[in-house]
Structures are given as structure tokens and as C-alpha cells.
Design a protein around this nucleic acid. Sequence first.
RNA 1: GCCCCUAUCGUCUAGCCCGGUCUAGGACACAGCCCUCUCAAGGCUGCGACACCGGUUCAAAUCCGGUUAGGGGUACCA
Length: 461
Amino acid sequence: MTVRVRFAPSPTGDLHVGSARSALFNYLFARAKGGVYILRIEDTDEERNREEAVRGILGGFEWLGIRADEGPFYQSDRKALYRAKAEELLASGGAYRCVCTVEELDARRKVAQAEKRPYRYERTCRDRKVPDGVPFVLRARLPEDGEVVFEDRILGPIRTGNRELDDFVILRANGTAIYNFCVVVDDVEMGITHVIRGNDHVANTPKQIHLYRLLGKEPPVFAHIPMINGPDGKKLSKRHGAVGVLAWRDLGYLPEAMLSYLSRLGWSHGDQEEFTLAELERLFTLEAVNASAAVFDVKKLEWVNGRLIRRLPAADLAGRIAPMIAARGWDPAAPWLGKAVAALQERSVTLVQMVDGLAPFYAEAVVFDPKAKGKFLTPEALPVLAGLADAVAKVDPFEAGPVGAAAEAWLAAGGHELKKVGQSIRVALTGAAVSPPLWDTMAVLGRERTLARLRAAAAGA
RNA sequence: GCCCCUAUCGUCUAGCCCGGUCUAGGACACAGCCCUCUCAAGGCUGCGACACCGGUUCAAAUCCGGUUAGGGGUACCA
């Protein structure tokens, strides 16, 4: 039987990194098993604008490069199906009508709580003929004794006494279905063989298993993956900073980095720290997923991202940052861009940082950092700058190698140590105390701008 | 409250299933050193963990029980 898995987010607007990882694990499992990965949007909540709510999720997957084999399917399109299935259950006795009102239920629940007694629906309507013409909900008829046991592929055996459960609602008075019911109906309908989802669903699983049985179906294999928490150990949320996958993109992270990092949260393959999607697709196994929660560590993500940036061809990077460059009003087609990127990639952790580093090259005039200027553009440094300009003026080609050779030769002849005058040169060229290596910087600037900046600085500008 | 899950360096993890090879390995972070025109990158070194208590055993990070801590669930939410 071919493996069929699904990721079923409720549309909240953006793809949370925790959701992204759940989706990733599902996707990887499908790929590793030669199975099918399905995307299903659980938008039974109505109201919200579906288009907009779903855009963030689909956009997130598009960025990550995770494509669904089937779907996206929308639960809001399948309401009739749920209703029909619920009625089937009613006919077969698997469900029954309940006319207890929300108010009554709330009151009883309160009493139970006051008495420190766990509240469960007392099955008032279970075996009675309910009056016609009164609003009713449908409740599942669960066994009163015994227990449900399932073998979670990650957590191991999980047993729940049926006494812990109650006859929960599957169809609201308004005729719409409740989550637990939709999930089961859809999973049955879509032929899902493995349900891989967040740990927060383990408590739902026994209920869902009962629903499978009531429907006369065999439950799938369950695998509950651990949660991703913030540094404080609490569920990762907005107050921990960026949680949407697309927000990380905007911060300058590469989808490959996000994928690689996410895969290592709760899963591992020996000591290997970095993975390509292709590697993950053949290496992933549920057996290697651990049971305990993980903390999202931005520092490690940064490390992965930086490694990737260093490793990527400069041309590739230039293409990726082109939109960001254009957004700043700069020319992404600048002929020297490739060289600049090559010089910057070793010292950029994010794409945003890299683009920031481009500023001195795009700037019309040098923008001086006052501190750097005061410290390094000293009177005694100025003649060196003027001399250096002359020394490299005729170098051809004006590339880092030859420029550096000429510059260093001239410096040595004059008894100037690069260690001493380097920063002055740097500030003259870029206005900042930090930049790529000097000769690279000159090569990127080109002969004309290099000489102009050196001479302007020398003249005290 | 009740039910369920989890528990190895600050963080991600290897090891745990099939006890000895573990004076517990790797990575991020942090500190120091080296390299060096700045910043990085890179190299080296250091710091640093089996939550606790019992039990089983010749032997426990590994098996069992309890405690504690954290997380999740407990809806006519998803």
C-alpha cells in the first residue's frame, strides 16, 4: 500500500515555523517512502477571508520549495460530506441526538469544577427519545468501559481509558461538523495511511480512533512529533519574535537554511548538521525523530544560513538579492556586483546584511562614519592616501591582485606598514571602519572611483 | 483539579530499544589563542550535561518504580 500523508493547517495567515516543520516531516516521509503528500486547509472556522488566510501558507511552502502532490483541499468545500457522514453515523447508531443546551452544559461543567471533579458529558440524551423541533447536536456514542490503545511511532504505546472520554459533539446544532470529526472523515476519505502531526494532538487521538471504528474504518498509523518552543520553553509564538516562515525570508534567510535547520529540530542523522532537501528526502525516518520538545535557536539558524551563503556561487547570490537591491533604488545590473558579492559573502550571515554591505559601492559619495573618520583620517595619514592613489593609478587590469601588488610595493618602499595605514585607506574608500579587504574593495569600485575617493580624502574632504 | 506526553552540556543532538566499548561524542553559543589591512571566515584550546530518589544487576545515561520540573489536552475551537 502506498503511503499517503497530509499536512492540515488551519489558515492563520502565515506559515508558522512549527507548522512548516510538521509539513516538512510529512513531506519527507512521503518522499522517503515513495508516497503521496497532501495539503489540506482546515478552514471550517468560516468567516475569515479564505484567499488571504491561505496565501501566507501557500506562499510559505512555495518559498521553502515544498510542493504538495495533491491539494490544497479545503474543508470549507466539504461540509456536505461531513454532514452526510454524521447522518450515516446517526442512522447506524454510532451517533445520537443531544438536546442539552450550551447553558446547561456550562452550568454542569462549573459545578463539576467547583467540586474538583473532572467534567464529562453525562450522556443524558444517549438513550432517550429526544423531542422533535428542538435544536440538537450529534454526539458520538463511545464505549463506557475498556480502553483505547495505539502504538505511536514516535511516543510508543499510548493507552487511554474510555472512562476518560465522553460522548463528544461531532455536529453542531447549526449542522456544521466539529474538527475531530472532519479530520477523521477527511483522513478516511483521502486514504491517509500515516498521520504525522504535532504533539498537541495526542489527546485527540483516542477520540479520533473511536470515530474510525464507528465509521467502520481502520485507523491509520499515528506519529506525534515534538513541539518547537521559544527560548523560555513556552510554545513558540509571536512574542518570541519572527515565527512566520516568510518573515525569516524577509530577514534575509535562505529557504535551504530554514529547511536544513528545521530538519534538525527533533530529528537527527548521526552527527550531521547540514542537509540539502534532496538528502533529507532519502534519509528521513520517523524512527530518528525524538519525543522531546526542541527550542528554536536563532543563533544556530544564523550559522546554517551563513555557511550556505559562503558556499553558494556569487552569481546565484546576486540573483537572489537582486529584488532587495532594486527595492533600495540601486541597480541590480551593476557590472561589479558579482565581485562585490564574492567579497561580501564570507562576512554575511544574512542576505540583508549582504545588501547592507553593498551600500558603499552604490553610494554616489562616501558617507563617513564620524567616529571612523576622526580616528583614521588623521593629518599624517592623508599624504599616504594621495601617494597610494598615484601608485595604483596606472595599474592595469584594475583587479584586486595587481592593485594589491602595486599598493603593497609602494607602501613598502615608503616604509608604511599596511597594519598602520590600512584603516585610513578603508575609511577613505568606504567611509566605514569595516569593509571587505582593501584591494577587493578597490577592484569593485573601479579605477575612477578609487582614485577619486582616495584623493578626496587626502584633500581633507 | 483530572488525563496524557517529555526529561543527556545554556541550545540542537549522538548514545538509550539490544546494560559494560561513555573518564558521555558532535554542533551552535560563549571564552582564550593562532592567522590577519578591518570585519568576518578558518584552525586550535577551553568551559559545559546523563533532573532527583530508590530498585534490578557483578555492572545503569541506558531496564523498572516514584518524585520533581516542563509541555500538551480537558469546548456546539482548530
